[in-house]
């Protein structure tokens, strides 16, 4: 493993809660590691599980997904579908031979900028410790 390994993280954030939560981290100037690249989606329920597989096959070291807290979905119940889908996807990840820890689903509200930065910091540290996904 290279000494200064920088994991590549792709984040899918729902527009209404988590993307706004990440914005809140910005407006509050709360720093966190710069490894994550955020893709904005309308709802966590928009995220096709295949996107996650695609991220890993393209070479991402970690995939992060965040949506509104259960009950708070802007589209009423999108995050419930997301929750079920990503619970199953978590099992499939291991089956694909990828460490389960490389994939994280969390609920972040529009006011939780601090929580967002904490989650991303911890996730980045974890991935850095795991090393590159494609070794060699």
């Amino acid at each position: 493993m290279p000494v200064d390994f920088q994991p590549k993280i792709i984040g899918f954030l729902c527009n209404w809660c988590s993307y706004a939560g990440a914005d809140m981290a910005g407006t509050s100037r709360i720093t966190y590691p710069s490894n994550i690249r955020i893709i904005r989606v309308p709802c966590s329920g928009r995220i096709d599980p295949l996107f996650i597989a695609k991220c890993f096959t393209e070479g991402a070291d970690g995939v992060f997904i965040a949506g509104c807290h259960p009950g708070d979905c802007h589209y009423i119940e999108g995050n419930y579908y997301a929750r079920r889908r990503f619970a199953l996807m978590g099992d499939l990840i291991e089956y694909l031979g990828i460490e389960k820890e490389r994939y994280q689903v969390r609920w972040v509200s529009a006011s939780e900028g601090k929580k967002f930065s904490q989650i991303i910091s911890a996730f980045t540290d974890k991935l850095a410790a795991l090393g590159p996904r494609i070794k060699g």
Partner: peptide, 19 residues
């Protein structure tokens, strides 16, 4: 979004923020 998701949260490392 290179402000809220970048410059404002990575002010501690300009090189990485630029990347």
């Amino acid at each position: 979004n290179i402000r809220e998701h970048c410059s404002w949260v990575h002010s501690d490392d300009k090189e990485k923020a630029t990347a």
